[in-house]
Design a protein around this nucleic acid. Structure first.
Lengths: 189, 189
DNA sequence: CGCCAAAGTAACACATGTGTAAATAATAAA
DNA sequence: TTTATTATTTACACATGTGTTACTTTGGCG
């Protein structure tokens, strides 16, 4: 029994995602979030005791989903297929990079925050694991020189996700172009 | 005559730079800036009528310096030398990307702001010009396939600047590695 | 010394944000 | 229809931020 909810958990995460991408961490406020959900601030406080715990929980959910998505890459394919698969999945997680970057700036207003920050950091490593595996696979299959530093390659690949599509290429073409740049750089041959 | 100043224009831009990188646009406040300068808020308001005009002026100064720095690249060198030169200069402008990204979110509280935003946008193009010239030069010298989209290459090169140096490589090595990745990608041969 | 001009501060009014407690609204079951 | 239960809102106290005005400090010059 009881009254119907005006917003679901899904609505909440959806609105949170939009708002934090639009305004950044410092610009994010419970007032703006409440407005977006057509609800009063207090209604949100019934679910989360403060802004920090709401945001950290949001990030944990986000990264959990992302880890799952990336861990489902098929590592039995040829290296190029693996890379393509990875890039497509990473493009689905477009804002993740930006969002997780804000995690460290969340204030430790309660021990729960500190704890979940720890969880976040652990899962962050799990997120990189498939990427690392892909790089190792590439080295094994002879596509990548073994002398290359994994951290650097990882950062390189991760960074390409944020290349702006100013040319307005269709997503498929765009991803293919990026894959080519990752593999062979800008050189002609 | 008159009393000695407690902070110079240089001090102001220095503190502004640090603060905006630390806290982002939304987190930037005149109180924090004043504290950083060991001065009262009102002292800053003697120079700039509001936060927005201070920040837009800061950005104009920043981009002016950057345009000059990048326009000084020697385009008579071999393509690889040009690229190396460019990368070294871009690394000096590390936070520029992040800072200029905030420009669009500055509120138009006065016509002066709107006007300077326009200037900023114009200079933004001037900033890309040397990069474009480098790409065209690369195409002419046969290093880059002419079919490549300039926007994409530009974004690609620009994005590599933000690769984190997690491996802790010395700057020289780091830049050399990145140059190699830009030229040839991760592939072995 | 005494004046005056530049530089700086304190204090005010106002706006926006946070988190809480008491009151209200909506729904299902008795 | 009454009641219990859950969801939501209103109103409050408090904190932080903005921009302005009146006042104070400091230093050179006649």
């Amino acid at each position: 029994m009881g009254r119907d909810k005006k917003f679901s958990t899904q609505d909440l995460w959806q609105a949170t995602h939009e708002l934090i991408v639009e305004t950044g961490y410092q610009g994010f406020s419970m007032s703006l979030l409440a407005t977006k959900l057509h609800v009063s601030r207090a209604a949100i406080y019934k679910h989360y005791p403060n802004k920090e715990e709401l945001l950290i929980e949001f990030m944990v959910e986000k990264i959990r989903y992302s880890v799952t998505l990336l861990s489902e890459i098929d590592f039995t394919q040829r290296f190029e297929e693996q890379l393509r698969d990875l890039l497509e999945r990473m493009f689905q997680l477009k804002d993740l990079h930006q969002i997780l970057g804000m995690a460290s700036t969340i204030e430790d207003v309660s021990p729960i925050i500190t704890e979940k920050k720890q969880i976040l950091s652990t899962m962050h490593h799990k997120l990189y694991a498939p990427l690392n595996q892909l790089i190792d696979e590439g080295k094994k299959q002879g596509f990548i020189a073994p002398s290359r530093n994994n951290f650097l390659l990882l950062g390189f690949i991760f960074q390409t996700i944020d290349i702006p599509n100013h040319a307005g290429l269709p997503l498929d073409t765009f991803i293919a172009e990026i894959q080519d740049l990752i593999l062979h750089g800008i050189s002609n041959k």
